[in-house]
Design a protein around this nucleic acid. Sequence first.
DNA 1: CGCCAAATGCAATCGTGTGTCATTTGTGAA
DNA 2: TTCACAAATGACACACGATTGCATTTGGCG
Lengths: 171, 171
Amino acid sequence: MQAFERLCRERGVSLTIQRRNVLEALLDGKAHPTADELFADVENRIPGISRTTVYRVLDTLVELGVIGKVYQPGEAAFFDVNTHAHHHAACVLCNKIVDLEGALPNAPIPPDLKPHGFEITESHVFFRGICRDCRKKKPRPRGTAGTGSRCSRTKPSRPKNKSSSKKRTRP
Amino acid sequence: MQAFERLCRERGVSLTIQRRNVLEALLDGKAHPTADELFADVENRIPGISRTTVYRVLDTLVELGVIGKVYQPGEAAFFDVNTHAHHHAACVLCNKIVDLEGALPNAPIPPDLKPHGFEITESHVFFRGICRDCRKKKPRPRGTAGTGSRCSRTKPSRPKNKSSSKKRTRP
DNA sequence: CGCCAAATGCAATCGTGTGTCATTTGTGAA
DNA sequence: TTCACAAATGACACACGATTGCATTTGGCG
């Protein structure tokens, strides 16, 4: 965190409360939050903060190299304070993300291989599957919409249109 | 193509002109088209076809195992008639996609590795970098928005709202 | 303090799809 | 060949993640 403040000064990046709080939320919140999860968290710290700002702050943090951004196949990207190279796997049932720290037997990334004269600069490796918990608890649910038990994720979705009857059209 | 017709009959899937044409577009169009690029292509073959249909047909073809769907990190997914296992790399400058057919020295996918009791069912491996052409022609463009030369991609985007001066508010 | 580029807030918009439902069409049986 | 019906399609709205344009605020500096 002081490292972050130092880095900002070095790079001439303003130290705003928004940036501080987003980083704090990343540091003491859940492990692999999406932008929206972070937004929800940061809202508690800075009540009026804008979603856009959270997205932009996250971009900035990624650019600074403070955090990593991980793209999931169909889903929202998530962020990771662990910036050293590792891969992830997501559970298709509960969406939990697990780190694959050095758990891969053979190096998945050929870093400077140049097939077809192609110079690779980024590698994205991502797995999906079923986590241990879900494998244990759901032998074959079948039809029943698996009510109880954790392994849930609800999407509150965003405030919507809210259509405030304010014509608000810009000339 | 006859193989496709056979497969459809086997699986009880109707042989519609839409499906035929989407597959044809895939077979003789560009190598790694996105859904929208295919839609644009198929529109020339079946003028009134719906975007929704193209998306659904593509899903169907993937389910039939006729084509593969590849998720790019931040971008739109693309489709691939080459269904045998291989990976891809996208050029960050021109967006061209190249196949990495067996070019990887060490197996990138640990198919049934169970780290943390996790059972992996899907693997996504994707690279980004700079293709040979772009490496040759852009030593350091600097400011100039690299005008000529192939290595371009324009996004016509979809027909838009077309909003006929309607106030655009939902009741 | 006061300045000003940088950062933020806000609403609109975009891109990539998915859901709903009425209509059309392939397909197998008569 | 015609018929009936499930399957597929078309039209359109909506979902969701994310971005953009522009006015306003603010951090950092002299």
